[in-house]
């Protein structure tokens, strides 16, 4: 097998006295969909933040695309082709749908956004003022692409192109966030609970969309609580509890793993896997 796109080794993060992530390891290959599951407080989102540069690890390494990126800034990781969404949804509320998605193309603008820090910034300002044809053409091309991306979500967002994001429904905001991430043309797409707050129909729709992305060959790292969806979409699943991995493997294997069942349901088996007598016995003082 070729070198993995994302490779995490021994990642650690402590907050005060609590270790939120205790030595996480994972490998993700091109075109793969890997899900991270686990109960509340298991450390999934912290792990996401550490990978995407929104938080700095206390130990361990992250390699992305063959480059060591441990402790890099989110903007550098975005430039390298890593896009993510956030647990509670973070769209630019006062920007239109179109501008939100255009923000996703930021790191891909070549002509309008020349390189080095100081002089490049001044040139960027100058170019924005005079708007030479090349810069205009680039912007036009990106704008066309925005509509292509939004077509993925059927007629959910296209009719609302020029509406501000704050006027969208919650589900549409989540879709918009994914569209913005896709606009980066990411090598790795990280989705943090993309169906949170969605009803059954919307969840099914999102499942189809993620399935389409996967079919296109998009590499995806997914955190999701709706385990039906995880089981259907994932190539592999990692289960975390209390900051550490407790099981890993195919969806079916992880789902039946005793450690996973225990993490979700409690440290005594539940749901018909135990005789009624035993439950009654445990219930008596």
């Amino acid at each position: 097998m070729t070198q993995p796109l994302l490779s995490v080794r021994g990642l650690q993060r402590r907050f005060g006295g609590i270790t939120a992530v205790k030595g996480a390891n994972l490998d993700l290959c091109e075109g793969e969909l890997l899900s991270v599951i686990g109960p509340n407080g298991a450390g999934k989102t912290t792990l996401f933040n550490l990978i995407s540069g929104h938080d700095r690890p206390d130990g361990g390494t992250v390699r992305f695309g063959g480059v060591e990126v441990t402790g890099s800034t989110p903007e550098r990781l975005a430039a390298l082709g890593l896009a993510r969404t956030f647990q509670h949804g973070r769209v630019f509320a006062n920007l239109t749908v179109r501008d939100n998605v255009l923000m996703g193309t930021h790191s891909r603008m070549k002509l309008a956004r020349p390189g080095p820090p100081l002089l490049g910034a001044l040139r960027e300002l100058f170019l924005a003022l005079i708007r030479p044809p090349g810069v205009r053409a680039e912007e036009q091309a990106l704008r066309r692409e925005v509509e292509d991306i939004l077509h993925l979500f059927g007629d959910r967002l296209i009719p609302r192109l020029d509406r501000p994001a704050y006027s969208l429904s919650y589900a549409n905001r989540r879709r918009l966030e994914i569209a913005r991430a896709l606009a980066l043309r990411p090598r790795l797409l990280m989705l943090d609970e993309p169906t949170a707050g969605m009803n059954e129909t919307e969840t099914a729709e999102m499942r189809t969309i993620i399935g389409q992305l996967k079919a296109r060959g998009q590499t995806i790292l997914l955190i999701e609580h709706k385990l039906d969806l995880v089981m259907q979409l994932s190539d592999r699943v990692i289960a975390m509890d209390d900051g550490a991995e407790i099981a890993a493997g195919t969806p079916a294997a992880v789902r039946h793993d005793p450690a996973v069942v225990e993490a979700y349901l409690g440290h005594r088996h539940m749901g018909g896997e135990q005789t009624p007598d035993a439950v009654a016995l445990e219930a008596s003082p």
Partner: peptide, 23 residues
Amino acid sequence: PAGELARDPRIRDAYLGGERTAA
């Protein structure tokens, strides 16, 4: 009632997803 619920296999599906959908 708690005793009945503890024996109900559906409680497991409510947490971990139904068996039939995990195709």
